[in-house]
Amino acid sequence: MLNIRFNDLAAAALGALSEVIPLDRLAPGLREMIADGVELAGEVVTLGGIPAWAGRPPGRQADLTGWECYVSSFHLEDHLPIKVGTLPDGEPVISEADQILMLRHGLGFAVEIAKAAPVPVRCVVGANSTNGTFRFHRARPGETWLHADLDGYRPEKMIVVDRGPATLGGTPW
C-alpha cells in the first residue's frame, strides 16, 4: 500500500500539479540514484549500499531510523536546475516556483524509492525558501522522526510517502 500525505503548505503550493512525475522525466541525478537501487543491509535500508563515510549503524545517531535519515538525506537543489539567490546576510533564497519544482521531483523520486525498497519505508520531502531535502528510512514500529501533524512544520512544505501497512504490529509509524 502506498500512502502520500501533504501538509497544507505543500498541497496549496502544488495544487493541480500534485501528479507524480514519472521516472523517465525525473532529473538525471535522481534517475541515477534510483538506478543504483535501494538495498537492505542487515536492519538498515540505503540508496545503493552503505557509503564509506557513514560508519556502522547506528553510529552517532539515537537509533537505526536516525542513521538511515542521516545517510539518505540530500538537497534537492543540488540535482535540479534551481536558482539559489542570496540575501544580504548570506542566507540562501529559493523562489516559490523552484520550491514547487523541488517538491514535484521529490515526490516522483519518493514514489520510485518506495516502489524499489525491499521493505516498508517512509520517504520525506521538504522544501522552503532556503532549500529542499529528501530523506528516507525503513518503517519500524515505535520509531518515527515526524510529528503526526505535518502542518506543524511551517514554513516547510512537506510531503510524506509511506509504503507498507498503515501500522506495524499495531503501532503507528
Score class of each variant (00 low, 15 high):
Ser129Arg: 15
Gly37Asn: 06
Thr130Pro: 00
Phe74Pro: 01
Ser72Cys: 02
Ala35Lys: 11
Val84Gly: 12
Arg138Ser: 10
Thr86Phe: 07
Glu68Ala: 02
Glu96Arg: 15
Thr65Leu: 14
Thr130Tyr: 10
Leu30Val: 06
Lys115Leu: 12
Leu80Tyr: 05
Ala97Lys: 13
Tyr70Asn: 14
Ile100Lys: 10
Ala52Gln: 13
Cys123Val: 14
Asp89Lys: 10
Leu80Phe: 04
Thr65Gly: 12
Ala41Cys: 11
Arg60Gly: 15
Val124Glu: 15
Thr130Phe: 08
Leu103Gln: 01
Tyr70Leu: 13
Glu112Tyr: 01
Pro58Arg: 03
Glu112Ser: 12
Thr86His: 11
Pro28Trp: 03
Asp24Arg: 07
Val44Phe: 07
Ile94Ser: 06
Gly29Glu: 12
Leu64Trp: 01
Gly48Val: 08
Glu43Trp: 00
Leu26Asn: 04
Thr46Lys: 00
Ala116Ser: 13
Ala116Thr: 05
Asp98Arg: 08
Thr133Phe: 13
Ala110Gly: 12
Pro81Ala: 11
Gly48Thr: 07
Glu39Val: 14
Thr133Pro: 00
Met33His: 00
Asn128Ile: 03
Phe134Ser: 03
Ser73Leu: 13
His137Gln: 12
Val93Leu: 08
His105Ser: 12
Gly106Lys: 06
Thr65Asn: 11
Phe134Lys: 05
Phe136Glu: 01
Ala41Arg: 13
Thr65Asp: 06
Asn128Tyr: 07
Glu96Ser: 14
Ile50Pro: 10
Pro120Gln: 08
Val124Phe: 12
Arg140Asp: 03
Phe109Lys: 05
Gly59Thr: 05
Glu68His: 01
Gly126Tyr: 08
Pro28Gly: 09
Ala62Asn: 13
Glu39Cys: 13
Pro88Asn: 02
Arg31Cys: 00
Val45Cys: 14
Arg56Cys: 07
Arg122Thr: 15
Thr65Ala: 15
Val111Trp: 02
Leu26Trp: 01
Gly142Met: 02
Trp53His: 12
Ile50Ser: 06
Val84Pro: 10
Ala116Trp: 01
Val44Asn: 01
Arg135Pro: 01
Ile34Glu: 00
Ile113Lys: 09
Gly37Lys: 02
Gly59Phe: 00
Ile100Glu: 08
Gln99Thr: 07
Val121Ser: 09
